[in-house]
């Protein structure tokens, strides 16, 4: 669940930004960039590309700022733009780019709190990378960034029920992968 106080602050900042205040943009960047960076990292698995897309996301936010309506929460709107940038990048430069080997220690992908105690961060990230893309996305959006299933549905273009199923199955897969890894390590001594 997104904190209502933070959400209200973001809405006020967005309205000020629409009114042309640069300071509001700076504050929005400060509050949203870390989350967006994590989200884009979880999509690309490449820190450099995630940083590039973060910049592109804020440019698109700037160009589409008139489309924000104050009665809507800011985060789903901004995350949807980040997702749009990622998809544009995929379509433009083929998905192969994303398959490149990534430096795991450089990646700063947040992990769901529910599984944090099950393994170390590196093992968690590795397991996360092996969860199917659509399930991982729903899982991360719900369990890490606190979006409701309705909000995820609007971002991804699916029904709320489908978003719930994806997140649930993603969590199941992640737990299964972590358990399998743990068993392998135990067997190997």
């Amino acid at each position: 669940m997104i904190d209502p106080t933070v959400d209200q602050k973001l809405r006020d900042l967005m309205v000020s930004y629409q009114a042309g205040e640069f300071q509001a943009f700076a504050e929005l960047y400060r509050l949203l960039a870390p989350k967006l960076r994590g989200y884009l990292s979880s999509l690309t698995f490449r820190p450099e590309q995630a940083e590039d897309l973060l910049q592109e996301t804020f440019l698109q936010v700037h160009r589409a700022r008139q489309s924000y309506l104050p009665d809507l929460p800011v985060s789903p709107w901004v995350f949807a733009i980040a997702r749009h940038c990622f998809l544009m990048e995929c379509r433009t430069f083929s998905r192969k780019r994303r398959q490149e080997v990534f430096a795991e220690d450089e990646l700063d992908i947040p992990v769901p709190a529910e599984v944090e105690s099950l393994a170390d961060r590196l093992a968690l990230r590795r397991a996360l990378a092996r969860v199917a893309e659509d399930r991982r996305e729903a899982l991360m959006l719900h369990h890490v960034w606190g979006f409701s299933y309705q909000e995820i549905a609007g971002m991804v273009g699916i029904g709320a029920g489908a978003a719930k199923v994806r997140a649930h199955r993603g969590m199941q897969d992640l737990r299964a992968l972590l358990t399998a890894t743990e068993n392998e390590e135990y067997r190997d001594g």
């Binding site: 629409q18 042309g20 943009f25 700076a26 700037h62 489309s67």
Partner: peptide, 16 residues
């Protein structure tokens, strides 16, 4: 990098 692009062209946007 973003500031260099955004700050000079930041105008009040007419909300949809």
């Amino acid at each position: 990098a973003l500031s260099k692009v955004i700050e000079p062209e930041l105008q009040p946007a007419r909300r949809l």
